[in-house]
């Protein structure tokens, strides 16, 4: 088996270009590698893969790759939640940090060709699905219907607003938004994301359809119930799992669930696989 000539754990230095506020505590960090060759190599990532982000002197953490390889820019969308993400949030444009990857299996986009795609995201669960959505839209002719269902706690918790606006207006895709608690500005649907499936104007794709579900555990459980009730088979429901990870390459042992290492066997799993992991997710 071929192997890289250098350390598995050696990050490459990246430069922070700009920072965009998404929602409270969540920002999008646009970056590029110092070395253009690295940038070119990295751009071969697949939707659903992830990378290890290093803040030197603080540590390293796994992060989803929300951009699609069909887009020009590379970026992470990161919630400030621990010491490393705190340090990332403190960086200014021009500052350096480290990235290694991409890692993980990613979504098998070829397998979905000819099928309808239903995306169901809750809160920051949209981050790992964004790549897949943009990729499918860039190759629109390869896929059947595309439906996006996205729910957040409040209107202020809706992420990727420019994308959402575009998706709502784009021809050939359906995008439905909802919030649990509306404010005075909100004119849209109110309720959990699953309540969108039952809206009178929504005709859910079920036959020949793959559903992508990402969001908090409670949302995940209810959405799975809804989808199964509509007739979705477990093998056509897809999600990405997140775990504490230290290496990203199947060695450190932290992300192992049952027999699967989330970093190399995942993070994308079908619900059929998830059920067989043998541990709570």
């Amino acid at each position: 088996m071929s192997h890289p000539p250098e350390s598995l754990y050696l990050p490459k230095v990246a430069v922070l270009d700009r920072v965009v506020d998404e929602i409270a505590e969540v920002k999008t960090f646009y970056w590029h590698f110092e070395d253009p060759a690295e940038q070119a190599a990295f751009k071969r990532f697949r939707p659903g893969q992830f990378a290890q982000v290093s803040i030197f002197g603080v540590g390293e953490f796994p992060a989803s790759l929300p951009p699609s390889p069909t887009e020009d820019e590379t970026f992470f969308t990161i919630r400030r939640v621990g010491s490393c993400t705190e340090a990332l949030h403190a960086l200014k444009p021009g500052d350096r940090f480290g990235v290694r990857g991409p890692y993980g299996n990613g979504f098998p986009m070829e397998e979905y060709e000819g099928r309808n795609l239903v995306f169901v995201a809750g809160g920051i669960g949209l981050i790992p699905l964004r790549s897949c959505i943009i990729y499918a839209m860039a190759h629109r002719e390869r896929y059947g219907r595309i439906q996006i269902f996205y729910g957040a706690r409040t209107p202020r918790d809706l992420m990727y607003l420019p994308d959402l606006k575009r998706w709502e207006q784009a021809a050939g895709i359906e995008c439905y938004l909802t919030v649990d608690r509306p404010d005075e500005t909100w004119r849209g649907h109110v309720g959990v994301v699953g309540s969108l499936f039952r809206k009178p104007d929504v005709r859910m794709a079920v036959e020949n359809t793959t559903a992508f579900v990402c969001g908090p555990p409670i949302m995940f459980r209810f959405v799975i119930q809804d989808l199964k009730g509509m007739g979705f088979e477990d093998r056509h429901i897809v999600s990405t799992l997140e775990r504490y990870m230290k290496c990203g390459v199947g060695k450190c042992g932290h992300c192992c669930i049952g027999v699967a290492y989330v970093c190399v066997d995942g993070p994308v799993f079908t619900y059929e696989q998830i059920r067989k992991l043998g541990e709570e997710i």
């Binding site: 754990y9 030197f56 002197g57 603080v58 540590g59 390293e60 230290k246 290496c247 060695k251 042992g253």
Partner: peptide, 25 residues
């Protein structure tokens, strides 16, 4: 046992080392 964790520690004003340490499930 094979599991490890990873930690950065400062070794000088502008230097750090990244180490891995045995970890326990």
């Amino acid at each position: 046992c094979t599991c490890f964790t990873v930690s950065d520690r400062q070794t000088g004003p502008d230097t750090w080392e990244r180490v891995r340490l045995w970890d326990a499930c």
